[in-house]
């Protein structure tokens, strides 16, 4: 049930190669990678670049799998900077041993300071270089969160470090390991767990044009929103705490493809829009990118008087 035929691997790999702009020569290699993922319980190596650790925190807020079971039963978390017992020189050796063995899924959280390598280092090595080494030996790269996927806030306009997404950095450096993007600020734990499980048990899941799993990012937030009837009736919230559609408070639901209006957060207890907070578009490519596209909007004093 869970395994794919050789033929489907090749088909999937062909699509992946096309998606990532790779030549036909890469197809057998990608197919092999995908097949091995399907058959074994590959270890996970988790690296952090210019990140806030919010996606790691979010993973530990998982509800679908109890966090204790997650790290002792479902994945072999071979290294994670916030959880691993190992520290200092021993931690550097541990990571290097994992990279030398290869064959893991690399989860990367955070951006890369492309114009200022000194702005992020692990054991004295610039993060950008460590990421390349680790990605080359990985079966697949999973970019978790907006920073690793699209640059996020570290890569926003006026940033002083020239930060770019981990995925863009790998592309710029010619690293062709298959990559899956799971944006969000933070990434929803279901999105990450669903994707990792899919990669481990079946292979790389169907991805959209941006490289995001279609299962979570194919539908418009606005279409699934509980406030959509208010939008239809043109009942708009004028300020925070009002009933109605949040469109006029700067809600980016109409341009954001995520499923959080239905999925909800923190074990289903709430979500941004349900709690009266406009969607900030954190699952999208343009999240935080432009200084003149605000997260939420409120009329200026002068405008209100006028």
């Amino acid at each position: 049930m869970n395994s794919l035929s050789r033929r489907s691997f090749i088909e999937l790999s062909t699509k992946l190669c096309a998606l990532m702009g790779l030549g036909a020569g890469a197809i057998p290699r990608v197919a092999e990678a995908v097949e091995e993922l399907a058959s074994g319980n590959a270890p996970v190596l988790w690296l952090q670049g210019q990140s806030c650790s919010g996606c790691s925190v979010s993973l530990l807020d998982a509800d679908a799998i109890a966090p204790a079971h997650l790290i002792t039963r479902y994945i072999n978390l071979s290294f994670h900077q916030t959880l691993s017992a190992t520290t200092g020189t021993q931690a550097v050796e541990t990571v290097n041993k994992i990279i030398a063995a290869g064959g893991y899924i690399l989860v990367v959280e955070g951006a890369v300071p492309a114009a200022m390598p000194r702005a992020c280092a692990f054991g004295g090595e610039p993060f950008g270089e460590q990421l390349i080494r680790a990605a080359k030996a990985a079966k697949a790269v999973v970019a978790v969160g907006s920073c690793a996927s699209f640059g996020g806030i570290p890569g926003a306009e006026n940033n002083p470090t020239g930060a770019i997404s981990a995925v863009q950095h790998l592309k710029n450096q010619g690293v062709s390991t298959p990559a899956i993007l799971i944006p969000g600020c933070p990434c929803h734990p279901d999105w990450l767990l669903g994707t990792l499980t899919h990669v481990l048990k079946v292979g790389i899941p169907p991805l959209d044009a941006l490289g995001r799993p279609k299962a979570f990012f194919s539908r418009l937030m606005h279409d699934q929103c509980a406030r959509f009837p208010d939008y239809e009736r043109e009942k708009f919230a004028k300020t925070f705490g009002d009933e109605g559609c949040l469109f006029k408070l700067g809600c980016l639901g109409p341009i954001t493809h995520t499923d959080c209006a239905l999925r909800q957060w923190n074990g289903g207890v709430n979500s941004c829009i349900r709690a009266g907070a406009p969607c900030t578009g954190c699952g999208g490519e343009q999240f935080a990118a432009k200084a003149n596209l605000p997260f939420i909007t409120k009329k200026r004093a002068a405008q209100q008087q006028g």
Binding site: D61, P67, A68, P186, N266, N270, S271, A275
Partner: peptide, 23 residues
């Protein structure tokens, strides 16, 4: 591990979601 997730679930009742409170 369960308790820290429960604390976040509790906060999200008024925060919309955690980490990164929306409200």
């Amino acid at each position: 591990l369960e308790m820290r997730a429960l604390a976040h679930r509790m906060g999200a009742i008024f925060a919309g979601k955690l980490p990164h409170a929306a409200t």
